[in-house]
Amino acid sequence: MNLVLALTIAVLFASGIYCLMRRCLMRLVVGLILLGQGANLLVFAAAGLTAGQPALVAEGASAPPPGAADPLPQALVLTAIVIGFGLTVFSLTLLNRARKASGTDDVDAFNRTDAV
C-alpha cells in the first residue's frame, strides 16, 4: 500500500510541476490542484498508514487502544484540503478575470508588470 501511495504522490507532483511549466493559464491552475493533492497525500502517508484500527476510545477506557491509527495527520490534511479548495476557487476566478482583461491565455503575454 505504501508503494502505491508513494507512486501516486510522485505522479501527482510530477504532473503538477509539468502543468505549472506550460504556457497555458488553465494548465497553471490544474498544476496547482495536482500539486496540492500531492502534498495532501504525502502528509497523510508520511505519518504512517494503519489499516482497520480507528482511534476510537472504548467505553470506560481513557485512551484509544494501542496500535490505533494516528488521527492527527488526517485532521491536518482535512485543514489543508479546505484551504486548498478556497485557493483553487480564488485562482480560477482570478484566471478568468485576467484572461478577460488581457484577451489571451498565453502566459508569455503577461509580462507588463515586470517590464523595465
Binding site: 505549472l20 496547482l32 496540492g36 485557493l87 482570478l94
Partner: peptide, 26 residues
C-alpha cells in the same frame, strides 16, 4: 490582475512546499 496572477501562483506553490515540509517533520 496580472501582478496578482504571479503573486498567487508562486505563493501557492510555496504553501504546498511548506505543507510537505511540515508533514514530513510530523
Amino acid at each position: 490582475l496580472e501582478g496578482a496572477l504571479k503573486y498567487v501562483m508562486l505563493n501557492i506553490v510555496a504553501s504546498a512546499l511548506f505543507l510537505v515540509g511540515a508533514g514530513l517533520i510530523y
